[in-house]
Every structure is written in structure tokens, then in C-alpha cells.
Design a protein around this nucleic acid. Sequence first.
DNA 1: CTTAGCACTCTCTGATCGAGAGTGCTAATT
DNA 2: AATTAGCACTCTCGATCAGAGAGTGCTAAG
Lengths: 348, 348
Amino acid sequence: MKRNMTDLTSRQKIILSLIVHEHTRTAQPVASKTLIEDYGLQISSATVRNEMNTLTELGLIRQPHTSAGRVPTEEGYRFFVSNLVQQTALPIATRNTITHQFYQSRRGLDHWLPLAASVLANQSQAVSLVTAPHSEKIAFKHIELISTRGSQVLMVLVLVGGEIRQQILALDEVYSQESLSRMANQFNQDLENKSVRQIEALEASADPLTQQIQAAILDQMHLTEELVTGELFLDGLSNVLSTPEFASTNQDHSPLRLLEERPMLNDLFSRTVLTEDIGGVQVLIGGEGTWQDLRDCAVILTRYGIQDQLSGMLGILGPMRMSYGNAISAVHFVADLLSDLITDTLID
Amino acid sequence: MKRNMTDLTSRQKIILSLIVHEHTRTAQPVASKTLIEDYGLQISSATVRNEMNTLTELGLIRQPHTSAGRVPTEEGYRFFVSNLVQQTALPIATRNTITHQFYQSRRGLDHWLPLAASVLANQSQAVSLVTAPHSEKIAFKHIELISTRGSQVLMVLVLVGGEIRQQILALDEVYSQESLSRMANQFNQDLENKSVRQIEALEASADPLTQQIQAAILDQMHLTEELVTGELFLDGLSNVLSTPEFASTNQDHSPLRLLEERPMLNDLFSRTVLTEDIGGVQVLIGGEGTWQDLRDCAVILTRYGIQDQLSGMLGILGPMRMSYGNAISAVHFVADLLSDLITDTLID
DNA sequence: CTTAGCACTCTCTGATCGAGAGTGCTAATT
DNA sequence: AATTAGCACTCTCGATCAGAGAGTGCTAAG
């Protein structure tokens, strides 16, 4: 039942666009009269109704009930997004302000990621999601052992890409900071740039302490490897709480549930990881048959970062009737910004 | 208008408790008949009504309208929480399961904090908040400089208490890992356990590189100092979305807004930081005049960690009609658990 | 002090009705 | 053949109303 460009006359496309636009604005069914009055079309409402009829038959719009205006269907939104949407670039002033915020005083990801979420939420007036970037191929970069108290040691592990993992180790006896540093240096030489597999393949050391630390390193690397995405940053919940799509009080079908269900989110992310290269934006409309909770919502997702090295996901979740033009360009813009920042500061 | 224990007869206390309990269960006004039927009181409904009348005059309960049952007032909840609530300890089996989850395979805070949020949310059926622990007196513990690419260097800064900050530095020229390590070691010796003030008081080094790095260290320490709390972990949003108190669609008065407004949250936290030692649980009912958004909600907060060294906040946010007994003991339990874990792994 | 009994008040539900919105169709027009 | 004016038709929405039911407050008796 897939429609393409050529199935519709240009007038039908205009009408569909206007219906989408108006319905996005008002959340109400759109009447033929509204269309000609508010948008100054040079045709009569009867003509519009005829066209609406065709669009209804094509399954792109529908009537909630006899004698109501029209509302875009899922299919209609898909068609709109695929063929009709025009990205509305952010005003240059806004872009500059935002860029400036990111670049000021050269902070790190822990500053950029929440900021990205906040910017996305503001620009799209929806819920934003940003995951910390994550490397697919985990490799050792650096280790540091810091004596803390008694035989307790803080291990700080830096992976290629820049992810940092920490762990407290309880050693069998007390070691001086000097000997811990020596040991760390040894690891730094031996393991630099090595993957989990390569480290596992190494001959086991005779020294039990070395063994213990190497095990801890591998442990942390495994944990990191199992992550589908890094930590999740959310923003803009309040943008969306008052919309009818999200306020739907039917207990177990709130789209916001999804945000707390890591497995589901990972599903969602995986899908985009698999189908898109960095730079492509994916728009999921109405749960696409898979996510019941997203029945009335749309998700716009993209990857950012550096392909095959360090990348994360970012996007927004909003009601299906959202301003796709704005939203898509906001997602693009923020993704590009983050990608640039990551490229500048990549740790390899 | 403060009531204390002795203002009420014990029968009145029972009736108030039952009203609170029943209203918590059903979210409906409670009728005198319901009370004697469902709780098997050995008195007549007329007597209950008389007592209800007194309680109403005392401002502890109210009628939404003539000929409706009674609902506890804010004042009523406060009295209940101060005088009548009984903590219902979690079942021993549950406690064991949870404790086990925390202690298994000795992970770190990055594992415990989300877990704490999740446990709290489950046990209280409300929204849980957990902030990463944070030290009030910032002091240098350890620095590591890791050569990454060209003249770019990753600085990893460990503070006393165990907070880790990272930053990418762009140096003027390329340094070998060895010289970077030497420099880091010098810092580790010179700055160990020093506070911001102490470091600032040191004589400035002649070496521009040393200057740059020391500036970066101070920068990060300042940033950390300015934090009221660490990162925030949330869970259990879906527990609460369907309750009438939260679904209230009046745009700008959703209690959930608060969760995204860091300044407001910090206010809330500060209040508890100031008024309570670790171990004390604070219950805010109905926004306490300060937080309009919390009009129909209650917040239960406590600190965890080690007083004056490393502590964070944790608690829940739920509808005013919540099961305070459960909630308070859940908060206590999780706080104690985290405090123990932090005590075990404190970095000093 | 407690309780049975009863009148009273207020909400809630469902039914009814008219107004209004918006369409679909038909026949006339370009 | 496409467009349009005109009109009948359908459905929703809001207001109004009545009856049932819930729950109370009061009174008078135990």
C-alpha cells in the first residue's frame, strides 16, 4: 500500500501538506473551509472536499466520524515525511547562540550531552533523547591505580574512544602508590590498544596481583562491550505531558513508559544503528507495528559521532502531529554539532 | 494551627489513620459506612460521623462537597506522618534480594545509583530521585595525563571522595607519554589532599605547561564545587503518570516539571541538606507553601553517605495520598544500603 | 456518650434536544 | 472534464433536566 510521489497531483500534495500543518497546529480535524480561508487557496471548498475524498480513498487522511474534518493517517504522515516535508533550517542567530554554548570554555561530554538534550527539547518542543557515545570495538587505552585506604585501590580505566570506567579493588595486601604506579605503567605498555580478545589471548601472568588486576580490566571491558548505548539523557518531558497523546490515562500504554524500559529503548536504537549510516535521520511513525506504546507518537532518531569508532544516538519523541520540518532539522543540527565536537576531541 | 499528639483521642487517631489508609487505596472520599464495614469497627457509622465532624473542625480532614465522604487535608497528612504513621519494614526476603543485587560482583556507584532509583521506585510505586554523592569540601587526590592524539591530552582528575572529572587539553606542543606521566606524578606529590584554596595559594610555576594544567585542575575543582548535587537518577515515572494528581493537564502546573528544573530541585535538596543530618528522613507535603507545582504531591527525602565527606540525596516524589509507611521505610532502607556501600569504598 | 432513623443536599448518570459544523452529492457553470 | 454553488444529511457538542444514590447532619431515644 505504499504511495510514491507520482501518485498524487501537486494540488493534492499541497492539500495534504496543509492538512498536516493545520492539524499539527490545532490538534483538531481540519475542515475544507478552514483550509481555503486560513491559507487563501484560490479554489472552492467543494473542490477541496473532492480532493480530500481522493486522499481519503488513498488512505492518507481520514475522518474521525461523518461530518468531521480530516486528520492525517499514519500513512499520511509517512508520505508527508518522505515526500513533502521541508526542513526549516534554524535561524542563523539561534544556530550561533547554540554553537557558542557548546564551544564555550571547552568542557567535555558531561557538559555537551545534557546541553544537547536541552537544545533538542527546546527546538522541537518534544521529549529529547541523547545517549552517551559508545565504541563498538572496545580497546584498552590506559589504566591508573590509585591507592586509597588500606589495601583498597581505585582503578581508573580509559578505553580507546575515551570512555572511562572506574572500580574499587580490594587487594590482598597494602601496596605503596609507587609500586601501584609501576604496575599500572606496565599494563599501559603491554595492553595499549589491545582488544578484549587480544588481552584474553595473552599468557597468564604468574603474579597473582597482576592476574587480579587484569581480570578486573577485562571485566570492565566486557561490561562496556555489552552496552548497546551509553548513559541516557532526557529532556523536555514537560513539553509533552499536557498533549492529549501523552496524557492518555490508560495505565499501561503511555509512550513515556518506553523511556524507562531500557530493553525497549535498545530495540529502538538498534533498529536505527542497523539501518542508517551517520548522517541519515530515521523517522518512525506510530510505532511501526512494533511498539504499541508509540501508537500516537513519532520518533526521530539519528546517530552522531564517528562511524565504527565512537557514536551515540540522539533524537526526539513527540506526538505524531509534530512539526517534522523543525524537528528533523533540529536533530540534524545537534547531531552535526556533537559529531564535530567528538571529532575534535577523539581519544585514540 | 499545629496539632500534637494529645489533641486527639485515640479513637480519633484510629479514624484518621483509617481515612488516610482508605483514601490512599481508592483515591476516593471515604464514607463513614465504608469505614465500619471494611475495617470492622465496633461502633456505629453515626459515631464515626461525629468524630469526623471533630476532625473536620480541627482541619485534619475535609469534605469535597456536602454529602461526600471525607478526604485528609494537607494538615491531616502532616499529622498522620508526624504522629501516626507506622513504618512497615520490607519483608526480609525482599530486603535480602535487594541487598544481594547491590553487593553482587562489587560494581561501583555507576551501578548502584540507577539500581537504587529502580528499587525505590518499585517499592514506593512513585517517582524516585537519587543524586550522585558529592563532597562538600573538594580536595585533590590524583591526576593522570594521557596522551591521545597530537598535542591533545586527556586529563583525568580524581578528587578526594572519589569523584572523577575529565577534560581534554590542547597543549602547545606534543609531549611524550613519559613526560606527561612525570608531570602528573609531580602534581600528585605536590597537590595531594589540597583544597582549592590551598592550591590557589601556591606560588605560580614558571613553566607555562604546568601553569596550564594547574589552571585546568582548578577549573574542574571549581566546577565541582559549584555543584549542589551530583548527577540525578530518576525512575518510576510510569508509576505515577496515570494517577490523577500527575495527569492533571493544566499545562504549567505538573509536578513533573520540577524534575527538569535543576534550580528548583536544588532548592528542594538544599532544604533537606540544611535541616537534616544523615539518617533523618524529611517529608514535604503539598509543596509546603513554596512549591506550587507540588500542590497535590508529597516528597520524601533523605541524605545518604557520610556526613561532611561524601553524601547525596535520595527520595521519592508521589501523590499526597501515598503509602507513607512503605515509602518512608523504603527510603530509609535504600539510604542505609548506599551509605554502607559508600563507607566501604570511600576514597580518602 | 452512643445510636437508629430520617430528611436533606449534592453529585452522577443518562436522556433529550437544538445548534452548529462539515461533509457528500447533485446539478449547473466554465 | 473540471469546478463550484447549493442543499440535505449526519454526527458531535453543549446545555438542560430528572431521577437515583450516596453520604451527611440532626434529632430524639436508648
